[in-house]
Write a protein that binds this DNA or RNA. Sequence first.
RNA 1: GGGUUGGUAGCUCAAUGGUAGAGCAGCGCCCUUUUAAGGCGUUGGUUGAGGGUUCGAGUCCCUCCCAACCCA
Length: 486
Amino acid sequence: MEENSQNELLAVRRQKLEALRAAGIDPFGQAYETTGAPGQIRAAFAEGQKVRTAGRITAHRNMGKSHFIDLSDSSGRMQVYLNAKEVGAETMAVFDHLDIGDFIGVEGETFVTKTGEPSIKATSFTVLSKSLRPLPDKWHGVQDTEIKYRQRYLDLISNPESMEVFQKRIAIVREIRRFLEDRGFIEVETPMMQAVPGGAAAAPFKTHHNALGVDLYLRIAPELYLKRLLVGGFSKIFELNRNFRNEGISRRHNPEFTMLEAYWACADFEKMAELVEEMVCHVAQTVCGTLQIEHKDAEGNVLRTINLTRPWRRTDYADLIKGIVPDWYERTPEQRRAWCIENHIDVTHCQEDFEVTQHVFEKLVEEKTMNPLFVTRCPKELVPLAKQNAANQSVVDVYELVINGQEISPGYSELNDPDIQRERLEHQSGGETQKLDEDFLTTLEYGMPPAGGIGIGIDRLVMMLTGVESIRDVILFPHMRPRAGT
RNA sequence: GGGUUGGUAGCUCAAUGGUAGAGCAGCGCCCUUUUAAGGCGUUGGUUGAGGGUUCGAGUCCCUCCCAACCCA
């Protein structure tokens, strides 16, 4: 396939490459000083300015003796006008060897065309990089999901809406950092390779350190190390980085994903809920400019609007369950299972009674909750690292924040009693349990201040704020099965 | 892991079991303010891979690969 059809398109570009070289022009040029990126010049446009800019040629409109080209990069697009009479025949001969996809630098003066388009009238241009392969369709861009994910650069070049989502993601992460730092939290870095993969219940990736001769695991959560820092005297810390879980890939799961965890000494889960509420609203207001987040389908119809207006609803876990089945907690475990079967909720995979209840919660509360909801005081079995409630030892002082039908953020009053922590970790039950990190338990014995802690799944937060349905659309390079030859 | 849908030109998409097409891109020509520029002409295919059924397969059957969606 590469031999025939593709090669004809490639051959033409290779010929132009050689033609440039024959004309004494380096097709892969040097540094080029600019007065601004294409999108910046367009955004701050003023007529009659001498400017220099650089970018990729993404469109070419040939009028005979004059040409219009679009130069683009992540900043946006700027039109360049090239007139044979003004730049001369020699320069136009060089221009004939350029293609859509090439990078050039342009020098000229700004003006507005008679159709009102801000433009640069080029006096000269410089070849910065020859593109040897054709770009995707200029109008439809890349539609093939496989190409979008495997060759993200093509998606970014040709699909402005994809570029916009990633720009928003970058802004969201930046605003979260700014928000936390403004409130006195400092960002720390803890190990991504851990001897005991703790802090969550998940299958880890295993690796090996040759010099030490030990197996290590990519972290599934930073929690236990951040708590070691609370013991060490830090009182307001956060880490915003990657976690790794060796589990299935789906619309909502990528093997590596970005997590924010923050800890605040002498705070509790209620104070953390306040913090998260403020933070998400700050980010939405700053990045999206609104607290009403519209999710649209491919045709642009609004599917739903998520209303982030404060205050956010807070309801106890048990009350939410009772809202579905009022006498749920008066029933026996067998009766609860029977109710699930009657109501077509598959709980065959649930080993323990609390898992049955949790499954009902996930299907009938979580998945149906679009606007923010803090689910408070969850069953203690679900959260072995949180403090038990003083009045009701069967629940823990936590919230689970649900937005957009997904768990976006948990927040705890952190368990700081080393003996209870040991017991809770040793007596976990159900399908998923956490590893026992002896070194962490020893650390707790030195004394950890009471603290509030939160986690926020950044990918899911970005999905919620940008209205995309798949985690792959908010991760630049989502994991795919490797393909031979690529 | 199970189910559904899909894979055709560089890209976006067509094609009752009966000669594989269009638009864009490319190439050639015309055009000095266009913007999915326009007009005329033109190149380009092992239809994801491999088997099978048939006079004849992009299309039907089987196996495999890749992807998306749903379920677990």
